[in-house]
Amino acid sequence: MTTNAYKMKQVETTKSVFTIFTGLCKGCGLCIEKCPTKTLHWSEALGVYGTPSVEPKENDNCTACGMCALVCPDCAIVIERKK
């Protein structure tokens, strides 16, 4: 198995590039609750158990703080701050 072969989806916001590895996301929603600007919601893209994964809303409130990535028990989120 190639180690980085997880299915993924990327969403760009003004301040960040949000990557959700749907191949790792179990759809627990812990990140949605912890997002300080309430900018995450359920995505159409399904996660590894066939449940919805997550992505930023279009309202573009993402501050690239990285809280969602920190509280993800499955390391399914990567946030890159745009320079």
């Binding site: 198995m1 180690t3 980085n4 191949g23 790792l24 179990k26 759809g27 627990c28 929603g29 812990l30 590894v48 158990y49 449940t51 509280v71 993800c72 028990p73 499955d74 390391c75 399914a76």
Partner: peptide, 17 residues
């Protein structure tokens, strides 16, 4: 160990953290 991920814990389980 990347090869064993996603791990076997339930969605939202604290063990992952």
């Amino acid at each position: 160990r990347v090869e064993t991920k996603p791990h076997k814990f339930c969605p939202g389980c604290g063990h992952g953290l």
